[in-house]
Design a protein around this nucleic acid. Structure first.
Lengths: 342, 342
DNA sequence: CATTAGCACTCAAGATGTGCGAGTGCTAAC
DNA sequence: GTTAGCACTCGCACATCTTGAGTGCTAATG
């Protein structure tokens, strides 16, 4: 356990470093009004904090910077009661005014969060796979071409182009659609393909001519290969951070961000609530010099999605955590409303 | 007009610089087998080419690099009959195998083109606004919530969430949909909103209770604010180019690429066919040290979209132009097939 | 005995200096 | 017209110097 004096000095150093990104020396600290100690005394305290592994020097006679352990301590102990602030309210209002298109809300949230924090926002959309089928429709564009449209109970719309087998007539198609809608109503998207292979198959064989031809097309319609949707906001924000003067880092990070799977892996976590991962605590090499703060938002009991904020280890933890908590609550509420209306 | 000797030296310098990104000196050139002249003679030729504004020096005693005018000459005169090569075939086949989902084709094309060239691909999707309405549908998710789905003759699907006014009953909704489909069939997407305001309005007033309430919602459904869709592939490729060691440039470029409007402006051009814009010929500051090669692909007579490749001014013009020509033809054909089937 | 002033020491970063080598332009010879 | 030779230029890499912010230690102080 740290003494009060140690705590305030640690906190001041971290706050300072978060703002300036340069090592903090004893003289600067001694001028801080909260600390009425001479530089020499502060140096002693700093040495103690360094022994505890909470601070680091960049070289033998430099000022101190927080170690990752230091940030960890700061996050766990210093940021206690996070205060709702103006920015949170702004965010909340903007979302409320905009109850419109789901994807749009998420993207706007991502952009807004980035604007407020100057970091990069990554949002994992709600898991489409877990949603249930509300209705399926085919709309013919031409004799050979149709569009299959699937709508889920969450209001999500999926669509695919399908080539129509030449033998299929309008009657058959109608029958087909009727059967599908009857049998697949309320079935989770993830189970559609399996249902098609088992229960539906025999039934169709009976009623539809040339079903085998149609079968392959239907399967391709029902296959949902993209498990989650990734939204990224403020990708360029990180470029303004001095930590990114090195092109190599930019390259590896951006390459990682082009890969939706990797991002999804990064954000997926069993726990719910706020989670802070600092520097090397991240397994992914591309961000092991960054901090990632994630928060999940949910619909009822099923966890649905995750919001993440990516920034340098000297992140404005307090602000970010507050914002994130608020936003994920807001999104959860939105989704719950949609379900309640159902 | 340049002499043969001048031409071959200019060409060799540019080819060389494209590969190495370092100034080319007379000694290196004299060792090239195509040029059997001494270094001294070459220096004289180079001096002439510099006088013509086709070459530049980085400092008074450096080797030469091509000026933008030099690239321009190279593109206009040296790259004559572009040869179909292996890479083009590869690309063509991959597209043919993949006649599936339109957006997917475009995104795959973008990624592929980037992989083949190591530059960044930007594709402007076909103009949704110009497509015509095939069918409109409402699918109710809950008593208060519905999804409106618009399908165009090109197979494009648009969808919006709509809140259902509490007074509206199922009958009315059905009538509404029928009227809309009857009156708006084959109407270009861009005219939908206007039609709604004029012709449709009075008709609806007659048949539907509480139409005024519904009207605002409908308008929001019909409004199509996003004129073109932008696909970007291989965004990180440019980061590997030595021209991008400077974070500032990366920042301004990436910021520009986050803005779909600006990108659309960049690629939109009245002319069809291949267009090469070199360095300062670009009006946009973010890319005025880069070259942009665009090619439009079309459906019948209506120009539909544009493919662009963004790279350093020392771009592999020959390869890129060949690939681009081929790909845009391929895409045009695909879209034409879709229309023919209609 | 905790706190502080003073001082010698350290080290990163910027400024300055130097040598090297790739490349040029010019001139004179072939 | 072409080429060899030579003096000259200048960026770049490298070493050296200077500066100043910051430290740790010690001795004096309330």
């Amino acid at each position: 356990m740290l003494t009060d004096r140690q705590l305030i000095i640690l906190q001041t150093i971290i706050d300072n470093f978060i703002q300036t990104a340069t090592p903090v020396g004893s003289r600067v600290l001694s001028k801080n009004e909260k600390i009425s100690l001479s530089a020499a005394t502060i140096r002693n305290v700093m040495a103690d904090l360094e022994d505890l592994g909470l601070l680091e020097k960049t070289h033998s006679s430099s000022g101190r910077i927080p170690s990752e352990k230091g940030y960890r301590y700061y996050v766990d102990h210093v940021i206690g009661p996070s205060i709702k602030n103006k920015e949170v309210d702004l965010l909340t209002h903007m979302i409320e005014d905009n109850i419109y298109e789901y994807e749009q809300i998420v993207q706007t949230s991502a952009d807004l969060l980035s604007k407020l924090t100057n970091y990069t926002t990554i949002i994992l959309g709600p898991d489409v796979i877990k949603a249930r089928l509300k209705q399926i429709q085919f709309i013919t564009i031409s004799p050979q071409l149709a569009v299959a449209i699937l709508v889920t109970n969450t209001g999500h719309v999926e669509h695919r182009s399908v080539t129509i087998p030449s033998g299929l007539n309008v009657n058959d198609l109608e029958k087909l659609v009727n059967i599908l809608n009857e049998k697949l109503y309320n079935v989770p998207i993830i189970h559609l393909e399996k249902m098609l292979e088992t229960e539906i198959y025999n039934l169709m064989k009976k009623h539809i001519n040339q079903y085998d031809q149609m079968y392959t097309y239907l399967k391709s319609v029902m296959r949902y290969e993209q498990p989650v949707k990734v939204f990224i906001g403020g990708q360029t924000n990180l470029l303004t951070q001095p930590e990114f003067r090195d092109i190599e880092k930019v390259y590896s990070l951006y390459t990682m961000m082009e890969n939706e799977e990797k991002i999804a892996k990064l954000l997926e976590s069993p726990s719910s609530g706020i989670k802070v991962t600092i520097g090397n605590e991240n397994e992914n090499d591309a961000i092991n010099h960054l901090s990632l703060i994630t928060s999940s938002y949910n619909l009822g009991l099923n966890q649905m999605g995750t919001i993440g904020l990516l920034g340098p280890t000297r992140m404005e933890y307090k602000k970010v955590i507050t914002l994130l908590k608020s936003l994920s609550n807001e999104l959860s509420q939105l989704l719950r409303q949609a379900e309640d209306k159902e």
